[in-house]
Simulated assay, not measured.
Amino acid sequence: MAKPKIGIIVGSTREGRFADKPAQWIAERAKAIGEFDVEIVDLRDFPLPFFDEQSSPAYVPSQAEGAKAWQDKIASLDGYIITAAEYNRSPTGVLKNALDYAYNEWNNKPVGFVGYGGVGGARAIEQLRLIAVELQMAPVRNAVHITWGDYMQVAQGEKQLGDIEHLNQAADGLLSQFSWWVKALTTARAA
């Protein structure tokens, strides 16, 4: 049986973004487990217009250019770990827009989060968990929260994320739960 394919979704498209650092770091940790085929899915590679469809893609095929490619990418994956910047106590607009451009493709798959910001992206992740439930995903409890002090040390080049032991422990907890859900839901979808 082939390994489940998981996508590390880079939840920011901003120039000079921090998101590449946690995306690479969690991808390396997920690959090290040896249970997954891991792919970084960068929202920059899927430019979607601001959502202006007739209806949710749950009911009507999307008409926007690029929407089908995005939906096909999401459908090809068995689970997702999303990097989540926190802007004004919520996830980025581009991430929310990308979530809205798919529906059935998300269903019955696990999702985990690596957040960063003043309180480690906790408020953005809390909102993303609610959205994930509506999209019929299974959000895992454990997450990685890169708080401001750790963020600044990494952003300024003083440390790398892998140098910060409590973040490594949080990542291991996230990946342990995520792995269980990937196996369970992949088996259930196949049945």
Results as ranks from 00 to 15, higher is better:
residue 70 W to H: 07
residue 115 G to K: 03
residue 139 P to T: 02
residue 86 E to G: 02
residue 162 G to C: 05
residue 171 A to Y: 00
residue 81 I to R: 03
residue 115 G to Q: 07
residue 127 Q to E: 15
residue 15 E to N: 09
residue 54 Q to M: 10
residue 122 A to P: 03
residue 170 A to Y: 00
residue 79 G to Y: 01
residue 13 T to S: 07
residue 173 G to P: 06
residue 176 S to G: 08
residue 180 W to S: 11
residue 31 K to Y: 06
residue 23 A to T: 08
residue 164 I to C: 09
residue 164 I to K: 05
residue 176 S to E: 14
residue 71 Q to T: 08
residue 184 A to R: 13
residue 11 G to L: 07
residue 55 S to R: 11
residue 9 I to Y: 01
residue 51 F to Q: 02
residue 50 F to Q: 13
residue 112 G to C: 09
residue 18 F to T: 01
residue 182 V to E: 01
residue 45 D to F: 06
residue 85 A to Q: 00
residue 78 D to S: 15
residue 176 S to P: 04
residue 167 L to N: 00
residue 28 E to Y: 02
residue 18 F to N: 02
residue 5 K to P: 08
residue 75 A to D: 14
residue 76 S to N: 13
residue 84 A to S: 13
residue 39 E to G: 04
residue 126 E to F: 12
residue 82 I to T: 10
residue 96 K to Q: 14
residue 16 G to W: 00
residue 89 R to C: 09
residue 174 L to T: 06
residue 94 V to A: 10
residue 23 A to N: 05
residue 62 S to W: 04
residue 25 W to R: 01
residue 110 P to Y: 01
residue 148 W to S: 10
residue 63 Q to H: 10
residue 9 I to S: 04
residue 72 D to P: 08
residue 131 I to H: 08
residue 139 P to W: 02
residue 125 I to R: 02
residue 120 G to R: 00
residue 17 R to W: 09
residue 46 F to V: 01
residue 66 G to S: 11
residue 59 Y to T: 11
residue 42 D to Y: 09
residue 54 Q to A: 14
residue 52 D to W: 06
residue 132 A to N: 06
residue 29 R to Q: 15
residue 86 E to I: 00
residue 190 A to C: 08
residue 161 L to V: 10
residue 83 T to I: 15
residue 126 E to Y: 12
residue 75 A to T: 10
residue 174 L to D: 02
residue 2 A to S: 15
residue 22 P to M: 03
residue 186 T to E: 11
residue 34 G to W: 09
residue 68 K to S: 11
residue 100 D to C: 01
residue 121 G to T: 05
residue 39 E to T: 14
residue 88 N to A: 14
residue 135 L to S: 01
residue 184 A to Q: 14
residue 55 S to E: 15
residue 159 K to Y: 09
residue 142 N to R: 14
residue 115 G to V: 12
residue 77 L to R: 03
residue 141 R to P: 06
residue 153 Q to I: 05
residue 56 S to T: 15
residue 136 Q to S: 12
residue 6 I to P: 01
residue 15 E to P: 06
residue 155 A to E: 13
residue 17 R to D: 05
residue 111 V to P: 03
residue 67 A to R: 03
residue 68 K to Y: 07
residue 148 W to V: 07
residue 148 W to L: 14
residue 47 P to N: 04
residue 105 E to P: 07
residue 3 K to N: 13
residue 45 D to N: 13
residue 151 Y to D: 00
residue 77 L to F: 04
residue 170 A to F: 04
residue 7 G to E: 01
residue 111 V to Y: 04
residue 108 N to A: 14
residue 101 Y to C: 02
residue 86 E to D: 03
residue 62 S to L: 15
residue 130 L to W: 14
residue 1 M to F: 08
residue 145 H to P: 07
residue 36 F to V: 10
residue 35 E to P: 04
residue 185 L to D: 05
residue 161 L to C: 01
residue 81 I to C: 06
residue 111 V to K: 04
residue 189 R to P: 11
residue 158 E to I: 13
residue 166 H to Y: 15
residue 75 A to Y: 08
residue 75 A to F: 08
